[in-house]
Design a binder for these strands. Structure first.
Ligand SMILES: [Mn+2]
Ligand SMILES: [Mn+2]
Ligand SMILES: [Mn+2]
Ligand SMILES: [Mn+2]
Lengths: 147, 147
DNA sequence: AATCTAATTTAGGCTTACCTAACTTTATTG
DNA sequence: CAATAAAGTTAGGTAAGCCTAAATTAGATT
């Protein structure tokens, strides 16, 4: 059987992607993701996190037991890994250009939600090739530092 | 005297940037931007456009005369030119990678709102240098076409 | 000038995604 | 094991951005 389409199945919102990305990150580093952890990590109130977690449960992206905890479903984990991949690839690309880490983080956190698969693949390929062209990168950074 | 800060002066939302960008575009191509033009062009209802236009007037980004028309203020025009610049630069960059026009348009329309000045300058410099490296670009596109 | 039509505005609603304050449940600890 | 503290939930709100339907205004047509 195929996965059941809850509705027309809109693409996940930026907020949903950010929650899933962070939940996966917390699970990978702490072993679990409690409401209070997610709230601190995203700088959002616990009440808002509870609300979103219940919604993600209803949408089949995670299993949530009230007052207990949560685990990502296969669908939720797939989305989480996907957004994480976009985040990492964009970060790698911008690092090549010698940008400040804080700037990179801020911009990536927004842009990651608007990159389609073809664009992602293109930037991935470009990043790989640029890594083998330190001379070109050096010239780019040189021009940037000159202002 | 300086321009008056209406409030803490948050950065313009993506919606505000999209409206301003489109209004400037319509003025540049048709000479004017009526509510009905903006609505058609953004595929948003006329009622929503009226609402936003009144808000942009209140925020000092354009001057609106009810039932008549609108003109961008210097502040609104500056913002409009700025977002337009981000749009064009990102488009130029992605065009280098040989992506489909529709994909480029879609992704740029989202990403343009999340690019800080340093990142924009870096991509600008990279685009300039890549333009002089057709061989590298050819290799990148080659790898992309191979899947 | 009265009428018809296109453009615009207003009124009333909806959804997403956040908030604070108050309450409940679970975990810790003396 | 009762009391306190921490975590989580619920209730009630807000603001941005959108919508449709029902006025209203302006411009064009007879
Ligand atoms: Mn993000
Ligand atoms: Mn991210
Ligand atoms: Mn846009
Ligand atoms: Mn744009």
């Amino acid at each position: 059987m195929s996965t059941k389409p809850k509705s027309p199945a809109r693409p996940p919102s930026s907020a949903v992607e950010d929650y899933l990305e962070r939940i996966l990150g917390l699970i990978n580093t702490k072993g679990y993701a409690r409401v209070v952890d997610i709230a601190q990590s995203l700088d959002i109130s616990q009440a808002s996190v509870t609300n979103m977690v219940q919604r993600l449960d209803a949408e089949g992206l995670l299993n949530y037991e009230k007052y207990r905890g949560l685990v990502l479903t296969p669908a939720g984990e797939a989305l989480a890994k996907n957004i994480t991949h976009r985040h990492e690839l964009l970060t790698d690309f911008l690092k090549l250009l010698g940008l400040d880490d804080a700037v990179i983080y801020h911009d990536v956190e927004g842009m990651e939600h608007h990159i389609s698969p073809p664009t992602l693949r293109a930037i991935e390929a470009l990043t790989a090739h640029l890594t083998r062209q330190p001379s070109l990168l050096a010239r780019v950074r040189e021009q940037l530092d000159a202002n």
